[in-house]
């Protein structure tokens, strides 16, 4: 999972210069192991020597993070991309779009819980409306009539909720398999599993369903971001630093819920 998984859902990724929205997608891919991996990463990095750049970039584990990115790149190249290629061959574009809508619909209960925890009543009502419309006349979420009805899509996760409660992001982390993160967002990954009401519906095939959902989420995410990630790799002077910057800026934008940046937060030019 070398990619950030930050493309704009529903938009053609090839039209975008860099991964554009919603780190939540990558967040959701990586819920279950977030906490444990975060702890492992911190332990593994503890002995890395610090440089002024690491401190300035709030990236004290940069050396280990860079190694993790290389590892993720190999997983991506040898396991994920071949599967994505097969997915492209076997499933036509319309089918892939339906899978994307279906998976997105499954995330809406968690989005709603986070909307409420952030006190975002209007966005919460939009999430409920999207879920009801797409689950019914959208044939269980495979179609997206809600967007046609101008009910906008948005994402929320517990990492963002923590941010709105004033929790700082902490140092930058590159998680094995899951990509860019930080302690706050990694904690959020685990918390989102607990917040997802659908995880409390137990039935015979529950675990298979859970595993299948995660598998297809990874597939969908990588299929959506393939061209964009390739574009970043091609144009980057330092791919690692580029991902770090993009991740942070996207997260800040997601936390602001797309509201305009405060001009005083921008650097002098």
């Amino acid at each position: 999972m070398e990619g950030t998984g930050l493309d704009r859902p529903g938009k053609k990724p090839e039209n975008l210069p860099f991964p554009l929205t919603r780190a939540r997608k990558s967040m959701r891919v990586s819920r279950a192991l977030g906490l444990g991996i975060c702890g492992l990463a911190l332990t593994a990095c503890a002995s890395a020597p610090m440089t002024p750049e690491m401190i300035a970039n709030n990236d004290p584990y940069e050396a280990t993070n860079r190694e993790t990115l290389k590892f993720n790149g190999k997983i991506d190249r040898y396991f994920v991309i071949p599967t994505v290629a097969l997915y492209f061959v076997l499933v036509p574009e319309g089918g892939r779009r339906s899978v994307h809508h279906f998976l997105e619909n499954l995330t809406l209960p968690t989005t709603f819980v986070n909307d409420m925890l952030q006190g975002e009543m209007k966005r919460g009502s939009q999430t409920v409306a999207r879920f009801l419309v797409n689950s019914t006349i959208g044939f269980g979420g495979f179609l997206d009539p809600a967007s046609k009805m101008k009910i906008p899509d948005h994402g929320e996760d517990f990492g963002q909720t923590l941010a709105t409660w004033g929790v700082g992001e902490g140092p930058y982390l590159m998680l094995p398999f899951f990509g860019p993160s930080n302690p706050r967002d990694a904690f959020g990954l685990g918390a989102d599993v607990a917040l997802d009401p659908t995880n409390y519906i137990h039935y015979k095939q529950h675990l298979w369903w859970f595993a299948g959902q995660k598998y297809f989420t990874i597939l969908d995410l990588r299929a959506q971001t393939y061209t964009t990630v390739q574009g970043i790799q091609r144009s980057s002077v330092d791919y690692y630093a580029s991902l770090r910057s993009l991740y942070r800026q996207l997260r800040e934008n997601a936390i602001r819920n797309g509201r305009a940046v405060k001009s005083e937060d921008l650097p002098d030019f």
Partner: peptide
């Protein structure tokens, strides 16, 4: 910036890291 990503900021982060 596109969708909240400022390009020169991203370039500065890359170049200084490089």
């Amino acid at each position: 910036s596109v969708a909240g990503i400022w390009l020169a900021l991203e370039e500065r982060d890359q170049f200084t890291a490089f």
